[in-house]
Design a protein around this nucleic acid. Structure first.
Length: 566
RNA sequence: UCCCGGGUCGUCUAAGGGCAGGACAACAGGCUUUGGACCUGUGAAUGGUGGUUCGAAUCCACCCCCGGGAACCA
């Protein structure tokens, strides 16, 4: 029978070659039905959306099998780069994304003794040796892409001498750089990584977890496959730049008797338009003050996206949709934004807030009159509930919703034009008040008392519907409008002048101090998400207080009017 | 100059000898008390040249382009 390999029309899940391979392994009962993966961050920085892709891939792959699991392993073999500070943020971010590693949290540093013992074993079997050349000699001896390497003069040391030297390295008898431990593989290999790679180097550095217990530290190429072996990993998933290490990965794993024998699979890392993803560049943005920190809502870090108002579900959905393949790509950030809007549209209560207030006075409305009107929090889902709006003589409307000399197809406020106040009433602009500078400071209107709630009493068509708040009831707030951090699709494109910071979008943050909110928006808690009707999705920032609410704009609504004007 | 990957609509991807399909974006229309959401429709692709075949995106050959690789980093 022919197994349909691709997905049919209307497919919900994007292609994922790793899932396909694992399903095949399950079918053939490879590893006895076990699937164990791991997410192995180095605790030297904050996680970003690229890591999120990997986290989703590793956890969803494990879920393919009954009893499958995904480990969280901190790959902390370089004491000079890592810090405990990052460990907690990584845990928090993975948890926030919605994944649970249960009791399977590990640290590569917990394996230092075991790794050492295995290295001794390799030495005893003649597969590793202590090299006493200088760094420069080792580098020169490795050759280059076109020339094979040459054997180190120390390559044929006796097992006894190697054992003695290695023990003394561990004991701290030598200075940094005096010796290294190397795997004895093949100095003439076309694969440069196989030319007797380093396994251990001397580093008299304080480790964030093991303190000063060790002065020799294992290299990634040795520690990683071994850690996978120790933990019973079946599918070791990493990004493409590690593909060259696969033969070496297998070499180490095959010199021990692991069950299961792990295998490494590589996939293409995520790149996004209008975004930089490397830890080094993100660090520069923070350190040079281009953003307020690792959790600045413009950052592609998980912490930044969380503060921006992204939902875990949107990120997971995005990761699923873009698929997993081996080809380099730059995903249109619009795909991410689509997943975001999709989730927010379904989950956000609708509210009203005026960002740039313009006073509107209803002249035929009593001075102290007030009409209470019910308004649902969702236009089509009653389970969201409703609140009461207060129609009063003085209101605030959006300055952008008024145009003194309207262009064609303008359905909003303009002299003589009638519009609907959402869930409020129909009002007609009768006059415009200006200050000495000629700026519009107030709109004078009349309303149709028959139109309470916004219904046209005679069925007349009123095309424009605008949002508003009662001046008397409005709560002042700060609103931070965020936009893409970069102006260019590919900020790293070398065709541009200057470095990537020259492409930062100067309009990526605009702070409005005088926004007017409907009252219920003043009492929401940090992280709560709402839609400000007609404007976009917003989230309560951690800086928010009861006295001074602060909202961040997560993303604008799709705006076909803005498009039309262009 | 060497080794390893990879090239399908603008973007991410299906189809792996038999109608090049989907999603996002774009465009057009419908509906609408959010110019939102939703619905309908349209345009849009197999890097090149040869070869095998009734038939090639798919197999073969050569070429071109892109990414990665020579840390005591991960």
């Amino acid at each position: 029978m022919k197994e349909p390999k691709g997905k049919a029309e209307g497919q919900e899940n994007a292609p994922n070659f790793v899932h396909d391979l694992v399903r095949e392994d399950l079918r053939t009962n490879k590893h006895g039905g076990r699937v164990v993966t791991r997410f192995p961050p180095e605790p030297n920085g904050y996680l970003h959306i690229g890591h999120a892709k990997s986290i989703c891939l590793n956890f969803t792959t494990a879920e393919l099998a009954e009893g499958g699991r995904c480990h969280l392993r901190f790959d902390d073999t370089n004491p000079e780069a890592e810090d405990t500070e990052y460990v907690e943020s990584i845990r928090e971010d993975v948890r926030w994304l919605g994944f649970d590693w249960g009791s399977h949290e590990y640290f590569a540093s917990d394996y230092f003794q075991r790794l050492y013992d295995c290295a001794v074993d390799l030495i005893e079997r003649g597969f590793a040796y202590v090299d006493s050349q200088t760094l420069e000699e080792i580098r020169a001896g490795r050759g280059d892409f076109y020339k094979p390497g040459v054997n180190s003069p120390f390559r044929e040391r006796s097992v006894e001498e190697n054992l003695d030297l290695f023990a003394r390295m561990r004991a701290g008898e030598f200075e940094e750089g005096a010796h290294v431990l190397r795997a004895k593989i093949d100095m003439a290999s076309k694969d440069v990584n196989l030319r007797d790679p380093l396994m251990y180097r001397i580093r008299k550095a304080h480790h964030h977890r093991t303190g000063d217990d060790w002065c020799i530290y294992p290299m990634y190429d040795y520690a990683h496959p071994m850690s996978d072996g120790f933990e019973g990993i079946t599918h070791s998933i990493c990004t493409l730049e590690f593909a060259h290490h696969n033969p070496l990965y297998q070499w180490f794993v095959n010199h021990f008797e692991f069950d299961p024998v792990p295998w490494q699979y590589e996939f293409a890392r995520l790149n996004l338009t209008y975004t930089v993803m490397s830890k080094r560049l993100l660090k520069r943005l923070v350190e040079e003050g281009h953003v307020s920190g690792w959790d600045d809502p413009r950052m592609p870090t998980i912490a930044g996206m969380r503060r921006r108002g992204y939902t875990p579900a949107a990120i997971r959905r995005f990761a699923e949709r873009i698929g997993v393949s081996r080809r380099d790509s730059i995903v249109d950030v619009g795909l991410l934004e689509h997943a975001l809007r999709e989730d927010l549209n379904a989950t956000s209560p609708r509210t009203m807030a005026v960002l740039r207030p313009l006073k509107l006075v209803i002249e035929n409305f009593p001075d102290d009159g007030q009409i209470d009107l019910g308004a649902p929090f969702s236009p089509d889902d009653p389970s969201f509930g409703s609140r009461t709006l207060h129609l009063t003589r003085e209101l605030f409307v959006e300055r952008d919703d008024f145009m003194e000399e309207p262009v064609k197809k303008w359905f909003r406020l303009a002299p003589g034009k009638e519009v609907r106040l959402r869930y409020g009433a129909l009002v007609t602009c009768t006059d415009v008040v200006k200050n000495a500078a000629g700026e519009v400071t107030e709109l004078r209107c009349t309303w149709d008392p028959e139109s309470q709630g916004g219904n046209a009493p005679d069925g007349r068509r009123v095309r424009g519907t605008i949002h508003w708040v009662s001046a008397k009831h409005a709560v002042d707030a700060e609103v931070r409008l965020y936009d893409r951090l970069f102006n260019e699709e590919n900020p790293l494109d070398e065709a541009h002048e200057g470095d990537f910071t020259a492409r930062i979008n100067p309009g990526s943050l605009e702070i409005l101090q005088n926004a007017k909110l409907e009252p219920n928006l003043a009492t929401r808690s940090h992280g709560e998400r709402v839609q400000f009707e007609r404007l976009g999705y917003f989230v309560v920032d951690p800086d928010s207080t009861a006295e001074r609410p602060v909202y961040n704009r997560t993303i604008q609504l799709k705006d076909s009017w803005a498009k039309k004007r262009k």
